[in-house]
Design a protein around this nucleic acid. Structure first.
Lengths: 335, 335
DNA sequence: TTGTAAGCGTTATCAT
DNA sequence: ATGATAACGCTTACAA
């Protein structure tokens, strides 16, 4: 259709210079109201759309943010899918596009691309199970960034995460309060803060009820389904009557193991997870879990990133409040 | 670190002009081998990365493709997640970035943005259950595009899809050959070609075995989980001994309904789906299904798009060969 | 084979 | 308040 309308066209049609047109369009001061209005209406009538590549080149930054997912991250469905969805939605609400980056094999190369390619001027990075080399690279490159979840204990970058410790304590409390007396757990990688906090929540719930923790039932996983499946086998050999998993994928692996051993859930074994990704009407089973507020997560991430792009370099760590879902993997509360 | 290295830097360091450097970098003819080599090595040593925004502006098109997902598409996990993953992977292999677009509320606006923003010069569009208004918009805007799956009968755009009819006939045949004599089905929306073909496969399998089809057990769904759940209730009321679902989500909804009615799978009810998204070691249950070759799908989509971007406007329809997975929702073959 | 120079669409720095 | 004009980094005729 109609050849692309450029700023020059709008300027000409409005009888002003490109500079003035630009100012008007960008809500910059120093434009007579009448002129501004005229430019604006011409722009909208002509279907003008700024060329972002040009805006970017001209030094004003892009209207595209990057979303950096670990190589294996997208496979870790459905968490990743929800994250992508909500970040995209939130970004869109701010007129920002989302460039998906999944190549994590070589952090350096990837980040350099991001920075130098000039298509992106801010990045939402997800912590992966393995590391967060990316964060260093990004900071070094002076690229505004926000991280999903908490990695190392002190990450010098903005992070947004769900509250982990108390939430975990709450859901573990549910296990203990519905009859479990011998809980096992498969944690995430404990060098990651979020995994550690979830585990601390596990311990805390016991402590509050003065119930001893059986150390032999604490297994450290790495959030991968495969590892979780192996560990579940090991754990179930020791016959716990309940399991708290560091995430829902792990919880599902436990359910799978139980199923294969003919252990009934929740009659013989209760299972609780974290994330809230298997709670809809159709999941089998619906897993009792701490539910991440994904929509809010996306919103806060994008807001945080925008702040960072505007020069706010404070490395605040924001915590969101989760909700809880009591599914079919735990018994109903005893009153 | 090191301030962004530009083409000018590389040129200066190599003792040539920017034009020559550009030619060397882009494998253009007319550069003395020795010079080319020098430029290349300088570029790599200095960590040079072309600024894509600039490349784009200069008229050479972008190195970013769009991936257009329906508004509700990303929720339709895990299919969407796999698609995103594989398209991204394939794109990356060609040095292309992927810009994710999910806003489908207003096609016109979205497409115009895509086209005019100048960040993307090719799009992979997924057919959604609702429509493909996008396709028209895209074509009208002269934007190179490839579509995932087949929508209307004759789509004037390149498409890549899994073979639907014979594959469905095969998996339905498996149901019939393992003892089912009263099959029901919940199809996708039949105004979509892929859904229709899958249904034709269902009919074909019966025909080949001279088994009559019970028309009252054919229900048309819309690929949404919610609708599938409702229809499953309706269908199970009529007591089929097997169900072929238009996709795995639907199959899962059927399993859910069965579970809630105390119907055992596969003893009392066999279920088969399409997509192959619930077949891994951890899914509960592992659903017998036609397995889409997702990796190949991503590859073909990107290849097709690249061809389209290079001027190949032929609207070919490419069919991929799926594999089959026999899971826990069907009985083992009777020998 | 290589260099010069003219854009690409936008924003920003000056003047005016 | 507005308008020239110079960048931004790159590609590409057109010259040499």
């Amino acid at each position: 259709m109609a050849k692309d309308v450029t700023l020059a066209d709008v300027a000409r049609l409005s009888g002003v210079s490109r500079a003035t047109a630009s100012r008007a369009l960008n809500n910059r001061p120093g434009v007579k109201p009448a002129v501004r209005e005229r430019v604006l209406s011409v722009a909208s009538e002509s279907g003008y759309r700024p060329n972002r590549a040009a805006q970017n080149l001209a030094g004003n930054g892009t209207s595209v943010i990057g979303l950096l997912l670990g190589h294996a991250y997208l496979e870790q469905l459905p968490y990743a899918g929800l994250l992508v969805q909500e970040v995209t939605r939130a970004a869109d609400a701010h007129g920002l596009g989302v460039l998906l980056i999944t190549d994590m094999d070589n952090p350096s190369r990837g980040v350099r691309n991001l920075v130098n390619d000039g298509l992106v001027n801010g990045v939402v990075v997800s912590v992966t199970a393995t590391d967060n080399l990316w964060t260093d690279e990004l900071l070094e490159a002076n690229m505004p960034a926000v991280q999903v979840g908490q990695g190392r204990l002190a990450t010098p970058v903005k992070t947004v995460d769900v509250e982990n410790k108390e939430s975990s304590a709450h859901i573990v409390g549910h296990l203990l309060d519905t009859g479990c007396i011998k809980l096992g757990t498969i944690t995430g990688p404990l060098d990651r803060l979020d995994a550690r906090l979830r585990h601390e929540g596990f311990l805390l719930a016991h402590e509050r009820r003065s119930i001893p923790v059986d150390e032999s039932l604490i297994l450290e996983g790495n959030n991968s389904k495969e590892r979780a499946y192996e560990l579940a086998a090991e754990l179930l050999d020791r016959q716990p009557d309940g399991v708290f998993a560091g995430n829902d994928q792990t919880a599902l692996a436990v359910c799978r193991q139980a199923r294969e051993r003919g252990i009934n859930i929740p009659e013989q074994l209760s299972v609780a997870g974290f994330d809230g990704t298997y709670i809809d009407e159709f999941s089998i089973p619906r897993i009792t879990s701490v539910v991440q507020p994904f929509t809010e997560l996306g919103t806060k991430l994008v807001e945080g990133l925008i702040a960072a792009m505007n020069g706010d370099n404070e490395a605040g760590h924001q915590l969101l409040t989760p909700s809880f879902f009591y599914g079919e993997t735990t018994r109903p509360p005893v009153n």
